[in-house]
């Protein structure tokens, strides 16, 4: 099943989404609908605007024009924190964690945010044992339980990426956004993360957006591919069709390259 067959209403959609930095249009009139249970991979050369498009959806950047809708509601003017609470979860490209806090605390903070008790000043954090159990559950899912007490700064790059995934899952989002989740990971760690992403999609019928460069990852996971080039959406559809299309051959794989995928 691909997105285009889905009759359900989109969980997330962007309409003519645009952002300008001075004269440079980083994301230009991008319109796309995303559906539950579908994993969409966004591809494109460096500087195509993939991460910027992500930032516009998750609220780190404010759009110049255009709209972002979540389950039909306009969220274009909301900040990142509010969007997270409404269900847009984001894992970052550059590992972006709390370096001097423990691995467990990093996940617990996400669980705590979900529980909405951040302003509670009078109870002990450790008294909320339910939150700790939840946090440990998500650490188990990414196989990081044995590192729970070490600080993030002491983790390997691969483990940091896994922790990113655990934090994202702990937010229990309806929309999951991964920005190159396997970048810099060792070869044997990649399948663990990919399997996890696949499982989450199947289990929860979630909407997943993924920025990825590695063509084998794209092939194994994607239900749909969107191609960005110079900030514009240049192709959108089923993986096989998109990869084979001339515009992708030229824009993404380079002129004259053949699709050996």
């Amino acid at each position: 099943m691909t997105a285009t067959d889905t009759v359900a209403s989109p969980s997330l959609s962007t309409h003519e989404l645009t952002i300008r930095f001075g004269g440079h249009v980083a994301v230009n009139q991008v319109s796309a609908d995303f559906y539950p249970g579908t994993l969409t991979v966004i591809v494109g050369p460096n500087g195509a605007g993939k991460t910027t498009y992500f930032n516009l959806i998750s609220g780190q950047l404010a759009a110049t024009t255009g709209t972002v809708r979540l389950f039909g509601n306009d969220i274009t003017r909301l900040g990142a924190a509010k969007r997270t609470r409404l269900g847009i979860g984001r894992a970052f490209q550059l590992t972006n964690l709390f370096p001097n806090l423990t691995v467990l605390e990093n996940v617990r903070l996400a669980v705590q945010s979900r529980a909405g008790i951040g302003m509670n000043m009078f109870s002990l954090w450790s008294a909320h044992t339910g939150l700790l159990d939840r946090a440990e559950h998500f650490l188990e899912r990414v196989a990081l339980m044995d590192r729970r007490a070490s600080t993030v700064a002491a983790l390997s790059h691969g483990d940091k990426r896994k922790l990113e995934v655990a934090i994202l899952l702990a937010l229990e989002p309806k929309i999951l956004m991964f920005d190159e989740p396997t970048a810099g990971m060792s070869v044997d760690e990649v399948p663990v993360v990919l399997e996890l992403i696949h499982q989450v999609k199947v289990e929860r019928n979630l909407t997943i957006l993924l920025v990825e460069h590695k063509m084998d990852v794209v092939r194994s996971l994607a239900d749909r591919i969107i191609v960005l080039h110079n900030g514009q959406l240049v192709a959108d559809g089923e993986p096989a069709a998109v990869i084979a299309s001339p515009i992708v051959q030229e824009a993404y794989l380079g002129t004259g390259a053949t699709a050996d995928v």
Binding site: S58, Q60, G79, A80, A81, K82, T84, R85, R90, F92, N96, L97, F98, P99, N100, L101, E105, R108, L109, A110, Q112, S113, R114, I117, G118, M119, N120, M121, F122, S123, L124, W125, S126, H128, I167, L171
Partner: peptide, 22 residues
């Protein structure tokens, strides 16, 4: 040492990420 205090430490560590956590 409250949930609030834990958020403050998260802000000290990485304000951008604390915001992204909601």
């Amino acid at each position: 040492n409250s949930p609030f205090g834990r958020v403050l430490q998260a802000i000290r560590e990485n304000e951008f990420r604390a915001e992204a956590l909601g």
